[in-house]
Computed example of a mutant assay.
Amino acid sequence: MHPLSRKQLVGAISTSLLALASANKSNNDFDVLDYVDPLIGTSNGGHVFPGATLPYGMAKAVADTKGENQAGFAYDTSVVTGFSHMHDDGTGGSPSMGNFPIFPQPSCPEDDINKCQWQQDDRETAWIPKSPKARPGFFSIDLANGVHAEMTTTNRSALYRFTFGDSDTALSPVVLVDIMDLPQLRSNGSAAVDPETGRLTGNGTFAPSFGQGTYDMHFCVDFKGARLRDTGVWSQNRAGFEPKSVKIEPSGTISASTNSAGSFARFYEPDDGKSIMARVGVSFIGVDQACANAEREQPDYDFEGTVETAEDAWREKLNVFSVDAEGVSKELQEVFWSGAYRTMISPQDYTGENPLWESDEPYYDSFYW
């Protein structure tokens, strides 16, 4: 199913609609989510978003790959450069959003912070073929560095669970955040870390993937699952424990991709010997609102509970459809339900997140029709 192009997907959906649009048929054993494959259309230029999101959700978490990565992840790629929390779906053209990717490393070689990999090109890591798993509200992938990454979302926050496999070196995980976006159109930005809690915060000014003007975005990352060892910031390919903040301004001589920076937190071995969770809040308004979004929407870092809530939200939306699939292949049913699912990824609910419109009225953005 995965290699279907967007054109093939549209044609298949049209066929499936003719085959499936019929009288209601109840089936107590039927779970619509078993027939949704978010990975359809993630290769051959499909540009679809396969990661974790709610229906019309603002936060969209997925692994970002190198290649034709307009929506973050593409199946016909080989390396992951980060995990980011804002994406568009099916836009074509230039990559879009992918702001503030985080990236875990099981440890730094020789326990030297400057021997970890910082910039995008240096830290890129191969992903294991056939490892990506996607389901409405959930995405996971295995990396060659031994990291198993899982992610889920609420409306304005993402929750990641990084599980570290066996390693020849002592486990002392480092998680960085990069003041970057997929199209590498950041003009300026800043990042900081709280040395007491390991909270990573910051912001950036970005150009859109097409159109005019700029927009500001803010992030807030908190961790659970391991005792904090040390913190700091990094710039280009160097890191240090002091100071605790870094700022980037536009440069006429250095590109955004080679003038990147961010902050990091390093931990002792996870409490369970395996996993660390990273909770990321995002906002177009400010850092405080990014933190508040995450704290309000998932105060308990409940990964399974967040996945379950997301799945329930998708079932509620998709169960308005009822079809008689007697005599219809499972593959054709998957195309139909995956197409129905895809119609509810965008537009995105930015209510309360438009800095130019102070209103509680519903506000949706990222229309691409």
Rank of each mutant, 00 (worst) to 15 (best):
I179P: 00
T309Y: 10
D272P: 00
L182M: 12
G204D: 03
P132T: 10
D31K: 02
P106W: 01
E311Q: 15
A265W: 01
T77D: 09
R186I: 10
V79M: 12
E124W: 02
T258K: 15
F336A: 06
V233E: 07
G57S: 05
D168M: 09
E150R: 11
Q184K: 14
A290V: 02
A313W: 00
P183V: 02
V48K: 10
S263P: 00
V246A: 13
Q70G: 08
D288G: 11
S366K: 13
L318P: 04
E110T: 11
S14T: 13
A144R: 09
I345E: 10
A134P: 00
F206H: 13
A239Q: 05
N69S: 10
P243I: 00
M97R: 14
L171V: 02
V177R: 05
E110D: 15
L39Q: 10
K330I: 11
P106T: 04
L318M: 09
C220H: 10
W369L: 15
V177F: 03
L18G: 11
L33C: 05
D122K: 15
F223H: 06
S359N: 08
K317A: 14
T152V: 03
A19H: 06
D349W: 02
Q298M: 12
D312R: 14
T42M: 06
Y215F: 15
F241K: 15
T169D: 15
N145R: 03
R123Q: 07
G46I: 00
A74C: 14
S260K: 05
V32D: 06
E242S: 14
S322V: 06
R227K: 15
P95I: 04
A74V: 09
E361R: 13
F264R: 04
S260L: 01
S338G: 06
D230F: 08
T306E: 12
D272E: 07
V193M: 07
N259V: 00
D216Y: 03
P104S: 10
D300R: 11
I248S: 13
A325G: 11
A191T: 02
A149V: 09
A207C: 04
A265P: 04
V323S: 09
V62Q: 11
G98N: 05
A325I: 01
G305T: 04
L171C: 05
D34C: 05
E150D: 10
H87A: 09
K224S: 14
S255G: 14
E295K: 15
D121Y: 10
R161S: 11
Q184L: 10
G51V: 03
S26E: 14
Y215M: 11
